[in-house]
């Protein structure tokens, strides 16, 4: 991203009046302390030390957050080793980000690996199921299971990638709680779950067209036909 070229802004145009401390309120150019600022920027021209304080003030077109984002580190645990032995390359990634363990698994593993996680690894509580839509990706949907184990006091995320229109096997036989959670994912993203006992919309009315949490669904978009037919008004807006 453009953060590579931004953290070294010794360009005299806007980078000079930053004393790298205090409030960069961006209000006025503090002309009194130019020498301190100049020395500060001269002392360490190349280090990105000034960047955290810098993002706040002036327009800053680039610098998407700090260049030093927390690193994703590999997640090593006996459980991951066991699962990898069992499922091989189906587990394409097992990492930890900010203390949160997650694994990315192949779509084909989906009912089995969840079953194994519940039965053998004691992840008996399915906290949530959700999805994320990436419009331009080849497989546009991330589907994420958030699992928790009471016995281990551990929370993990299991993620898989699916293409548009592809169905997933329902996990209701594994965790009954996923009944409504899957219905919500279906309602909001249009991802079907095969074998779900009662897959229908949950928050939006039956007969509504479209899935609002897809990225190609606008924030003020609505199913005008449905609104006119059922509410008797031109538009809800």
């Amino acid at each position: 991203m453009p953060d590579e070229n931004k953290p070294t802004p010794p360009t005299p145009s806007d980078g000079d009046n930053k004393p790298t401390t205090g409030k960069p309120a961006g209000s006025v150019q503090p002309s009194p302390p130019p020498e301190g600022a100049a020395s500060a920027s001269a002392a360490k021209p190349a280090t990105p030390a000034g960047t955290p304080a810098k993002t706040a003030g002036d327009h800053a077109p680039a610098a998407p957050a700090k260049p030093t984002g927390p690193a994703t580190i590999p997640w090593d645990s006996p459980m991951v080793a066991t699962l990898k032995r069992q499922f091989g390359s189906g587990i394409s990634e097992a990492s930890t980000y900010l203390g949160q363990n997650y694994m990315v698994v192949d779509r084909s593993l989906i009912p089995e690996i969840l079953q194994v996680l519940r039965d053998q690894e004691q992840f008996d509580y399915c906290v949530d199921i959700t999805a994320v839509h990436y419009l331009t990706r080849e497989k546009p949907f991330d589907v994420i299971w958030i699992l928790y184990s009471f016995a281990r006091n551990e929370r993990i995320l299991v993620k898989t990638l699916i293409s548009d229109g592809e169905a997933l096997p329902s996990s209701v036989p594994i965790w009954p709680t996923t009944n409504w959670l899957e219905r919500e994912v279906y309602d909001m993203f249009g991802i079907a779950f095969e074998g779900h006992p009662d897959l229908k919309r949950i928050l939006l009315p039956e007969g509504w067209k479209g899935h609002p949490l897809r990225k190609d669904y606008g924030i003020i978009q609505q199913d005008n036909e449905w609104v006119q037919a059922n509410l008797g008004i031109e538009s809800g807006q």
Partner: peptide, 8 residues
């Protein structure tokens, strides 16, 4: 502007 990532 949080860095790219996901968190629960």
């Amino acid at each position: 502007k949080p860095p790219v990532g996901e968190i629960y």
